[in-house]
Amino acid sequence: MDIKILGPGCANCHRLEERTHEAIAELGLDADVENVTDVAEIASYGIMKTPGLVVDDKVVVSGRVPTTREIAQLLAGG
């Protein structure tokens, strides 16, 4: 599984990254987590409000930080 955290390094981006790692650990997934900090690349995903969560090149969350449980559901469902 290929996971990207979109965000230039704001507080919310770090929180999303933390929770994503928690969710991955909870589910015991084998996943690569990559931070995308370049604004042009972030914008090319079509999100206008950071942070964003991209799973296998598909935007699943934009502009908010979901709870760890919600992220786990998104990862398990996707």
Partner: peptide, 10 residues
């Protein structure tokens, strides 16, 4: 800038 994929409403 070209947008890829579908837009997710936050």
């Amino acid at each position: 800038t070209r947008l890829r994929g579908e837009i997710v409403d936050s």
